[in-house]
């Protein structure tokens, strides 16, 4: 597979560069609230796939449970909306069974950093070639307004009436500590930038985290479009910023509050994706391996060890 997703075989040939956003459109009416930041994620994801020439049948978008996870229902693509917290695990299975597919995970902050925290940690260190887009709105919106793992201290909701007492998860630092090879952040209110980050994540060979600041217009009246817009700055505005510099990335990833960094925070290209360590994939995707690869003779040889 080439990095831009061009098809190496007949099976993977899609509309390629002739793709448009329309190829990813379906007839389903979204149930997202008017003005929801998830619309930005949907638009950016489609745009990134178009830009990379990845056709709907060449990608697999795996989501969890939450408002944003419904994204797979709102676009024409191979989609699998799984369980709360589990899309990374399902996606890992998809990728290891058929590495020809471009596997993209989309889930929310509760899904990714809360209930699915263990999978997040292990995906980061495992480094499968999966792009992980987290719609981080700092709230549980599908269940209608409870605080999330990324809610700031003091954030008042129906389950934190006196204000959240826990420190928020800093997903960038966690990912960095866990060994992630690509860590980026973007803002759903700037979908063009987000599309660039998603495309860079898909191009990256290995696990790519894109933490998306995604305003929940209904339940989060603190972290709004304006709140984010006032605080974000692009790390690449500093020409000296080198995403390969771990120490600088650590310092940058730690920033939250008055100034919030967006862009590619960290990236290293010298770690082969997990799939390359899997012996069974040396001969290609196992989904294409015919059953008769195991014949009577080989079966007899297998039995010989028990004699």
């Amino acid at each position: 597979m080439s990095e831009n997703g061009a098809a190496p075989s007949g099976r993977r040939e899609g509309s390629g560069s002739r793709l448009t956003l329309k190829d990813f459109a379906n007839h389903i009416k979204s149930s997202w609230c008017p003005g929801c930041g998830d619309f930005g994620v949907l638009a950016a994801l489609k745009q990134a796939l178009v830009k990379l020439g990845i056709a709907p049948h060449q990608a697999a978008v795996i989501s969890g449970i939450g408002c944003g996870s419904k994204i797979v229902d709102y676009m024409r693509v191979n989609g699998f909306m799984t369980l709360h917290g589990r899309p990374l695990a399902v996606a890992t299975g998809v990728k290891l069974a058929n590495p020809d597919l471009h596997v993209i995970v989309v889930n929310g902050d509760g899904d990714a950093y809360g209930i699915g925290g263990n999978h997040f940690l292990h995906a980061a260190r495992r480094n499968p070639d999966i792009t992980h887009i987290v719609e981080n709105n700092q709230i549980y919106a599908l269940t209608k307004g409870q605080y999330s793992p990324t809610s700031d201290r003091g954030f008042k909701t129906s389950t934190s009436p006196d204000g959240a007492a826990e420190s928020p998860v800093n997903p960038l630092l966690v990912a960095l500590a866990a060994g992630a090879t690509f860590i980026a952040r973007s803002f759903a209110g700037e979908p063009k930038h987000l599309a660039e980050m998603i495309a860079a994540g898909i191009r990256h060979r290995g696990y790519a985290l894109i933490d998306v600041l995604q305003p929940c217009v209904t339940f989060n009246k603190v972290n709004t479009y304006e709140w984010y817009a006032e605080r974000i700055y692009r790390v690449d505005e500093d020409e000296g910023y080198d995403p390969a510099d771990f120490a600088r990335a650590w310092q940058t990833a730690g920033q939250w509050g008055d100034r919030i960094p967006v862009g590619i925070i960290y990236q290293r290209d010298d770690v082969p994706p997990y799939e390359e360590h899997v012996p069974a994939l040396k001969a290609g995707a196992v989904v294409h391996r015919p059953f008769d690869a195991l014949d009577e003779e080989r079966f007899a040889a297998l039995k010989r060890e028990f004699m």
């Binding site: 699998f80 799984t82 695990a89 399902v90 299975g93 069974a97 058929n98 999978h119 989904v287």
Partner: peptide, 14 residues
Amino acid sequence: AAVCMAIGAGYAGA
């Protein structure tokens, strides 16, 4: 994770 990976692989056709 183990069972979810298997379900992912099963979905993909393995």
